[in-house]
């Protein structure tokens, strides 16, 4: 199996606050990695670094064989221009905690925007693909609605469809259900589970332990900018070896 994501000794500070203190992580193609950890442990920062929304101070991240943010030529690494970084990002889908749908565009326009403007797909083709994606997340009848007319769960499903429209090789989810009312969590998790079963490579930051147990190939526990523990769900969730993992799990379970 090849590594879809390869993270090597990544460090990142905000001012004097060191948020990532040497992260090493490999996610294989088709693998589902669930990242757990207390608030402020650096989970979001790590996800954002994989997408180059955040530039790391040292260390390397590669996605599908290419370095994030750099281009290698001989023995030199050239920093990428913004345009090239944007190009790289089209291969990675990102789903935000607050959905971040574009409120002035309809659901369909939200999904069509990136394929048309970033991948230069013909509009007709992009619309057809978007309609298929909406059907897949169970919102075929909402194409003409504006985001604010939808429930939180529906908005997040649109956001997932929007990320999928670029046909990314990797999907990143940053607490996709944390902003939702409890009764809406299930419908979003079901969509993510579906994707997982179809072999999509994904990294999911979440506090939903049941979800982690069901779909994760690997559970990663982060604390204070470090990966404290990683392994199969049964190992990390049911037989944690570190005190901090135990303390965290006893709080969220």
């Amino acid at each position: 199996m090849t590594a879809m994501v390869d993270i090597r000794s990544v460090h990142k500070s905000f001012g004097s606050l060191e948020v990532l203190r040497g992260i090493d992580l490999e996610v294989r193609s088709g693998e589902v990695a669930v990242v757990l950890g207390p608030s402020g442990s650096g989970k979001s920062t790590l996800l954002r670094a994989i997408n180059h929304l955040e530039k790391v101070d040292s260390g390397w991240i590669s996605v599908a064989g290419s370095l994030v943010g750099y281009r290698r030529q001989g023995d030199r690494l050239y920093e990428l221009r913004e345009r090239e970084i944007l190009k790289q990002r089209t291969r990675i889908g990102f789903v935000f905690q607050n959905f971040n749908l574009f409120p002035h565009l309809t659901v369909l326009e939200n999904i069509v925007e990136a394929p048309v403007s970033a991948l230069r797909r013909p509009r007709k083709e992009a619309v057809r693909a978007a309609e298929a994606l909406l059907a897949r997340v169970g919102l075929a009848d909402k194409a003409a609605a504006y985001p604010r007319q939808l429930s939180g769960g529906q908005q997040q499903r649109v956001a997932i469809a929007r990320a999928l429209a670029l046909e990314p090789e990797l999907l990143l989810f940053d607490e996709p259900t944390s902003a939702l009312d409890p009764e809406l969590v299930g419908e979003v998790l079901d969509v993510i589970k579906d994707l997982a079963h179809q072999g999509t490579t994904m990294i999911v930051v979440t506090h939903e332990i049941g979800f982690a147990r069901e779909v994760a190939d690997t559970v990663v526990f982060m604390d204070d900018g470090r990966i404290v523990e990683r392994g199969a769900p049964a190992e990390v969730l049911d037989a944690p070896r570190h005190e901090r993992t135990k303390a965290f799990l006893s709080k969220v379970l």
């Binding site: 997408n51 929304l53 913004e82 345009r83 944007l86 190009k87 790289q88 990002r89 089209t90 990675i92 990102f94 935000f96 607050n98 971040n100 749908l101 574009f102 925007e113 990136a114 403007s117 970033a118 991948l119 929007r162 990320a163 670029l166």
Partner: peptide, 23 residues
């Protein structure tokens, strides 16, 4: 405009000028 809007546009790889004009 909420900062998350630009972030989402950037994450989708939408070109810079288009981010400003369209989003």
């Amino acid at each position: 405009v909420d900062g998350g809007q630009l972030e989402a546009a950037a994450a989708l790889g939408i070109p810079r000028l288009r981010q400003l004009r369209r989003i």
